[in-house]
Nucleic acid binder design. Structure first.
Lengths: 143, 143
DNA sequence: TATTGTTATACTCTATAACTATA
DNA sequence: TATAGTTATAGAGTATAACAATA
């Protein structure tokens, strides 16, 4: 590594600071659609694939199963998700987006991508590609 | 951008997940030296330059001024920092590392860099360079 | 009156454990 | 008895406001 490596801030500090900046930059997009960060995480996970249990959903978004209940209540109340007992095992809840939920997700995500692009716009295309690829490589999958 | 860009997770999710992984990877290094994350942040900021007020220090590490007081108490108790009223304005506290504080900082930082290098070791040298450069570019300076 | 540091308070997040309903 | 979901409780982290000392 070049000599400047010794003087750089710690990687953790850089990443955490960038994370805070990203959350701040995305907040207006979420607020505009009246969706919380956890609410968006749920919509995003269910957009990928319906889930058979709330625990699996919680794991997928890195949350505790007790933590998403209020979020699910609200999303269901607003008819953005469906949440019904599995007839074959009535302990578990089948979770999926409603059409309205998918539509909202697409809108919010578009706004979030715009905010991200603004932040990334100062990079060259080559740097941006490498950065995103490395980020996906280093960012751990949920267990 | 290539077509795969549309399917990538949101940038915020990637960065936040990486941040959590980094904090987890660095925790053992901090614990080995009995230093909290905020404690390390303080040592790190003061290693760069002494500070003339606690508020400036708090700003430098992205914390509230009320939040670092307990941390400063403990570091001072352990004789890792000096914290004395400025004779010219006795409201403010002059802050700097003691030799012991600097020595501890160097040790902890070495361990933290080792943990970071383990995470980065799967990257090519070229990717690593670009990644660190972009990260420093995007990560906002404290106000 | 304004500013630095401190303390007190309340509020949000999160983690743990108890509880219910099903199996 | 074991598991999915829920609720209740307590703990940590954070933000706000009040306070003391100094200017």
């Amino acid at each position: 590594m070049p000599d400047s490596d010794r003087d750089r801030p710690d990687l953790g500090a850089l990443v955490v600071r960038l994370g805070r900046a990203l959350i701040a930059a995305e907040r207006p997009a979420l607020a505009a659609h009246d969706v919380s960060m956890w609410g968006y995480a749920v919509l995003s996970a269910l957009a990928d694939e319906p889930m058979r249990t709330q625990a699996a959903l919680a794991r997928a978004i890195g949350a505790d199963k007790t933590r998403i209940i209020g979020t699910l209540d609200e999303l269901q109340e607003r008819a953005l998700i469906e949440r019904e007992p599995d007839p074959e095992d009535r302990r578990v809840r089948l979770l999926r987006l409603t059409p309205a939920g998918r539509q909202l997700y697409v809108s919010v995500r578009a706004d979030i991508r715009l905010a991200e692009e603004r932040l990334l716009s100062e990079l060259t295309l080559a740097d941006k590609r490498v950065f995103l690829r490395v980020l996906q490589r280093l960012s751990p999958e949920p267990d």
